[in-house]
C-alpha cells in the first residue's frame, strides 16, 4: 500500500547488527517493536540475570531515541520497578542519530547497570540502598534475579506449565521463587 519508510534500511541494519552480535531478537510488530534478550554485565551484581528488553522505535527513529523497557523485574535506581521503564531522560541526553541499537545493548545498558545514577532515581528505594547499604543493594539485586530474571523463569513464562489461561495472573512473588523446571 505504502512505500517503505525512509528509515527502513537503517532499522534493518540495526537489527542485523544485533543478530550478528548473537543477540536473541524477537520481532513483535512490524519492525518497530521487538524484544531483545539482555544478559547482566559480567563483574556486576546483575551477572547471571537475563531480561527481556522491549524496544520501541518511534516513527522518527533514529532522530528520536528508542524507548527501552525491562519486561521482567529488575532492581535498579534508574529503572521503574513496576513498569520496567528506563527513564527517557537518561537515553535522550546522550542520544544522537548516529547511535544504534547495538550501542544500547553493548554500551548503554551495561553502563547503566554498572554505574547507576542515584541522583535522579526512578526507584528511590534502590537509590537509597545503593548509596547507604551497598551490600543490601547487591543482595536485593540477586534476589530479584532469582525471582524474575533466570532463564527458567523466562521459559516458564513463555510456556506456562499449567495450561489454565489465567496462569499468568496467578503468578505471585512467593510462587515464582520455587518455580524451577
Amino acid at each position: 500500500m505504502s512505500s517503505p519508510p525512509p528509515n527502513k534500511k537503517r532499522i534493518d541494519a540495526d537489527i542485523i547488527k544485533l543478530i550478528e552480535a548473537k543477540r536473541e531478537v524477537t520481532i513483535l510488530r512490524g519492525l518497530n517493536e521487538f524484544l531483545v534478550k539482555f544478559y547482566g554485565p559480567k563483574g556486576t551484581a546483575y551477572e547471571g540475570g537475563v531480561w527481556k528488553v522491549r524496544v520501541d522505535l518511534p516513527d522518527k527513529y533514529p532522530y528520536k531515541s528508542p524507548s527501552i523497557g525491562f519486561l521482567n523485574k529488575i532492581y535498579h535506581p534508574n529503572i521503574d520497578e513496576a513498569s520496567g521503564t528506563v527513564c527517557l531522560d537518561v537515553i535522550n541526553q546522550a542520544w544522537t542519530p548516529l547511535y544504534d541499537l547495538s550501542n544500547i545493548f553493548e554500551q548503554f545498558l551495561p553502563q547503566l547497570l554498572s554505574y547507576p545514577n542515584p541522583i535522579d532515581p526512578l526507584n528511590g528505594d534502590a537509590a537509597a540502598l545503593f548509596l547507604h547499604k551497598p551490600e543490601d543493594y547487591q543482595k536485593k539485586i540477586r534476589e530479584y534475579i532469582q525471582k524474575y530474571a533466570t532463564e527458567e523463569v523466562l521459559e516458564e513464562q513463555e510456556n506456562p506449565s499449567s495450561s489454565s489461561e489465567s496462569s499468568m495472573s496467578d503468578f505471585s512473588e512467593d510462587e515464582t521463587e520455587g518455580m524451577e523446571l
Binding site: 513483535l28 517493536e33 522491549r54 519486561l71 523485574k73 513464562q157 499468568m168 495472573s169 505471585s172 512473588e173
Partner: peptide, 17 residues
Amino acid sequence: DDDVMDIVNIENWWQFV
C-alpha cells in the same frame, strides 16, 4: 498496589509475544 499492577502489566506484554 504495586504487585497487582505488575502482574497485569506482564500479562499484557506476554500477549504480544
